[in-house]
Design a binder for these strands. Sequence first.
DNA 1: AATATGTTTGGCAATATAACCAAAAAGCCA
DNA 2: TGGCTTTTTGGTTATATTGCCAAACATATT
Lengths: 110, 110
Amino acid sequence: MYNDRKAILTARAKVLKAMAHPTRLFIIEELERGERCVCDLTGQIGADVSTVSKHLSVLKQAGVVLDDKRGNQVFYSLRVPCILNFFGCVESVLESNAREHATLLEAVGK
Amino acid sequence: MYNDRKAILTARAKVLKAMAHPTRLFIIEELERGERCVCDLTGQIGADVSTVSKHLSVLKQAGVVLDDKRGNQVFYSLRVPCILNFFGCVESVLESNAREHATLLEAVGK
DNA sequence: AATATGTTTGGCAATATAACCAAAAAGCCA
DNA sequence: TGGCTTTTTGGTTATATTGCCAAACATATT
C-alpha cells in the first residue's frame, strides 16, 4: 500500500472527479466569467433545474465553487481562480490523442 | 444545450475522469520518475495485478500513458510530461478546503 | 514440449453516478 | 395569508466503476 501518499492523492482525486463531467466543466467556464445564479446556468445547459442544482452541489462539496444566497436566488462563483489555467495540460493530452488518431488514419491509407 | 462547447468539454472530462482515482494518481506520480512495469507498480500499490492492469488501461485509453511491451513485461510511461504541474491548482483548492475547515473549527471554539 | 513469469480479459458483486420527476423549502410580492 | 419564483431534496431507474478471482495469453526458460 502507498500509505504515505494515499490521503493526499484521495483528496486530489476528489477534486478531479468533481470536475470530470462536461456539464460541470461548462459551469466552471461560465463562472470564470463571473458569478451566475442557478437559473442562468440552467437556461444555458438545457437540463432540468434539479440536475443543474445537483451538479453545483458536487462542485461545492469538492470546494471548487462558493454559493451566496441573495434573496430568492443562489449565486455561484469560482472559489479558486486558477481553475481554468489548469487545462493547458489536459489540452496537450487531447492534442496528442488527435495526432495519434491522424497518424493511424494515414497508416490505413486515409 | 451548450452545443458548441460540448464536444471539447466531453473530451476534457474524459481525461480528468481517467485521472480521478487515488491509485491512478499514484501511478502518474510514479511514472513521472520514469517508466515502470506492471509488476513494479503492483508491488507498491498492493492490490491485485488485474486491478492495477485495469487502472493502467483506463489511463492508456484516455491518452495519459503509453505502453511498451519488451519481452515478458509491459512498461508504462507518461505520454504528456506536464501532467504533474497540473496539480498546482488542485492543491489550491485543497488548501482552501483546509483553511475553511480550520475556520469552522475555530468558530465552534476549537 | 512443459513450466514459470508477467499481463490482460471476463465475470461477478458492491457501490456510485446521472438524469428526470415530484415534492418540499425559502424568499418575494400582492 | 396565498400565490409565485427559485432552489434543493427525495425517489427511481439506468448505467458506470471498482475490486477481486479465475482463466486466458504471451513470452521466456528448462
